[in-house]
Every structure is written in C-alpha cells, then in structure tokens.
Design a protein around this nucleic acid. Structure first.
Lengths: 132, 132, 132, 132
DNA sequence: GTGGTCTAGACCACA
DNA sequence: GTGGTCTAGACCACT
C-alpha cells in the first residue's frame, strides 16, 4: 500500500496523505488499524523520514489518524464518517476553479458527470444507479 | 477586468492566468482582442511586470494568447475552440483526485453534480436546460 | 507575393526578408525587377513602414536588392549567383545546431536527407536524381 | 560539462538548454542523473540563478528533465526515447526555412548532405556506415 | 511603447 | 540545500 508517483508536481507529503486516504476509502486500511512506523515507511518509499512525519502529522490534524505515544499511529475509528465543513468548503472551491478550467477547454458537462458517477460507483456502492 | 485576490496561497501568476481565462469564457475578452500591456497591467494590479509577463507567456504556451513582439499580446482567435487533449487529461486527473477527497469527506454525489450543473448553467446560460 | 505569417516567433522584418528570397528563388521575382515601394507594401501587409524599410535595408546589405535613389528598389541582377562565404558559414552553423536538436529528438538521418532532397528538387532541377 | 559561449547573439538560457541536450546526446549526462543545482551552476557559469532556473524549467516542459522540488533536477529517464511529434514538426519547419536560405546562397545539395552525415556519424558512431 | 532577457537579491515550501 | 515565486530595475530587439 501507499505507492507514490515521484516526479509529479505535487509535494510528496501530499501524495502520501492522498494515498492513505485512498487506502482507507478502499478499505485496504481499516479503522483502528496500525500504520507502518515513520521509519519503516520512509525506508520502504526511499524517502526522508521528515516527509513521512509531516504527512502523518497533517493527517492527525485532519482527524484521519491518531497517534498513541510510544505505540504508533492508527486509523481513526471514531470520526471517519463525520462531515468536516471546512474541508468541504475547501473542496467546493477547488471544484469550482476546476470547473471553470474545464469549461474553458470545452469539456462537456456530460463528460464531467460521467467522471463523477464513475468515481462514486467505484468508491461506494450504496446506490448503484448511476443516472442522475 | 482581471482582478486578483492577493494573499491567497496560489501564486499570483496563476491567479492572473485563471482570471484571464475566466474573462475569455465570459466574453469580457474577445478573440483577437488586445490585452493590457505588461507594464500597464503591472501598475494596475500593483505587481511586478515580470509576474504579468510570466502569466502571459504561460498562456501563450497553452495557446490561449498570442504575443507579437513589439506590438502587444492578444487573445488567440484561431485555436480557442479546439480540444486540447493534454489539458483535458490533466483536468480529468485533478478531478479524480478531488473526487476521492470528496468521497473521503462524505460529500454526496448529488451535491457534486449540483456544483457541476450550477457552474455550467452560469457559464453557458444560453439554454437553461442542462443538455450540453 | 510576400505573404507573412503573423504571430510566429520570428520578427516580421526577417519574415519579409525570407519571403523575398523565396520569391526570387522561385522566380516570382526576377533579377532586375522592381519591388513594391515601402509604402505600398506596408499598406498591403498592414505593417509599419519602418518594418518594411528595415527588411529592404538589410537585404541591400546582403546584396540581394539594390536601391536607386528616387526610383525604387530592385532585385540585384549581378551578384545573385555569387557565393557569400560569411552567409554560408552562418547557415552551416545553424545547420549543425539544428542537427544536434534533430539527433536529440531521434529524427532519423534518412528523414532529414529526405527533407533536403525534397527541398532541392522543388527549388532547382539541375540534377533530378534525388538519391545520394 | 555545460560550458557556455557568452556574448553570442543567442539568449543564455537557450545556450544552456542546447548544451544540456548535447551532453545528454553524448552521454556525458545519463538518464536519471542529477544535474548541478541551480545555484551551483549559476556560480560555475557566472550567471544569475534565475537564468539557469529558466533553462531547467523549459527543459522540464520539453520532458528532457524532471525536477523534484526540494531535491533537485534530474535527466528524465522515462520518455527520452519517445518521439515528440510537435518538436519534430518544429525542427522540420526550421530545416525547410534554412534549406531555402541555403538554396538562395547557392549551397549545393551534396554539401548539405555532407553536413548531415558528418553530424550523424559524430553522434551515433557505433556503426560507421551511414544506414540509420 | 511593446515584450524578451538578464541581474540582484529576498522569501518561501519542500526534503 | 533544493527549486519556486516575487520584486526591482536595467538593457535590448522589434514595431
């Protein structure tokens, strides 16, 4: 788990954060499960431990992970389903900017909705019907 | 036209690029129209000319603008409606990442589709029905 | 004659110079023939007269054109076939740089030789056999 | 490596770009190898860091280099052998213009083909015969 | 007056 | 220590 695509323009610590969230979403990482230690992951990914550490710390701030001193870092099993309005607003804003870009480059509404549906069908199968 | 919200975490030249694309989309800037000169815009936005220049040059690479040395910078009137697959792929990828984030934070599919529709109705409100 | 492709990265006066040479080569302009006046060409091409003037002046320096005061500018009919070693060296150097670029981008030798032959068959039909 | 002939009419950053490509072609720089840091090269070449930075960034856009923020700039080891049609077309066009110039100045086809062969033998002298 | 190039030097994010 | 961003200001080629 946690595979990183070097040489992207996104900072490594963000890629790690993203990858962990993805794993939680796909239930590769389960609530309460222990994550590899900073040292372990840093050697595995051939990265500076500080980079891993930063990712863990930020995920703690986002309440995605919890660290128990002297024991390790775990997936938070309490608040994972709580809606974080600050995050939602942040994402909303990014969405809007991306939508303007998409508009500029003549990407059709249907195409975008297709992406959205595809993503949601892959991630959560609560309601399988993909037509809006 | 071209107003910038300084003191955001995004680089200024990107904000300028975004703002120009927005203006073109909203037909505040028309194809073939001349943009303010680098110096002019730099004083207007209280920025260094180099920053404006960078934005213009990057937009030229994206085929959004055309610049004629010694004359000025213009909105490209040739390829503005051509689909740029590289850009589309780039946006698609960003979308997918954002969708996973959204999924993680329990944002509903309907909510996102609402954002998409709102954006598209705002931009191309010639026909109100959502068929593109 | 003399058609200019605006919005290229090459300066306009160079494009004019190039275009005139092309016309001479293709015998659209014949030795001794009179060129349009600076004013005439400037209105025809929608350009600043200074730009045309600069092109003419530089072509005079290269002995491609001759200007007779009060009469006009003409294609030089004397030295057009003389080899100008400075120019040849200049071109040779540009060729070498372009060849390294070509090499870098994995363009095959055969492809380049094809370009050369095509160009020479189009321009001069002294020896028609295009195989080396 | 990377030596620059200052005081040519070509911009410094282009000379740097050219020099790096040459070094890659001659295998002085190998795929995946780290380039000198912006500051290092800037002192070595007695130039401003920004100029080096510009060259590196443009080469990144051409997929020649890959830069990892906070780590350094590397020779791209992925796509270096892939044909970039845009670049090829660009070079083709420059070739054609140069060929017309050459034609005008009465440079013989054989002479040009000689240049081409010489360049290709110098670069890929694994097999001396001119079959690519 | 237009954009392009270059220098000098500051500050920041990232590793 | 790495590259990225931004400012300030100079000089140049082009129109």
């Amino acid at each position: 788990m946690v595979s990183i695509n070097k040489s992207k323009n996104k900072p490594l610590y963000e890629q790690i954060m993203f990858s962990i969230k993805e794993d939680i979403l796909h239930q590769i990482l389960l609530p309460g499960e222990k994550l590899p230690s900073v040292r372990e992951l840093s050697t595995q990914l051939m990265m500076n431990p500080n980079t891993i550490s930063k990712a863990y710390k930020l995920l703690e701030q986002e309440k995605v992970l919890v660290t128990v001193k002297g024991k390790g870092t775990y997936v938070n099993d309490e608040i994972s389903s709580k809606r974080n309005q600050i995050k939602v607003d942040e994402i909303h804003q990014k969405f809007n900017e991306l939508l303007i870009e998409a508009n500029y480059w003549k990407i059709k509404r249907k195409e975008i909705i297709g992406w959205v549906n595809k993503s949601f069908n892959m991630e959560e199968n609560t309601d399988g019907n993909s037509e809006s």
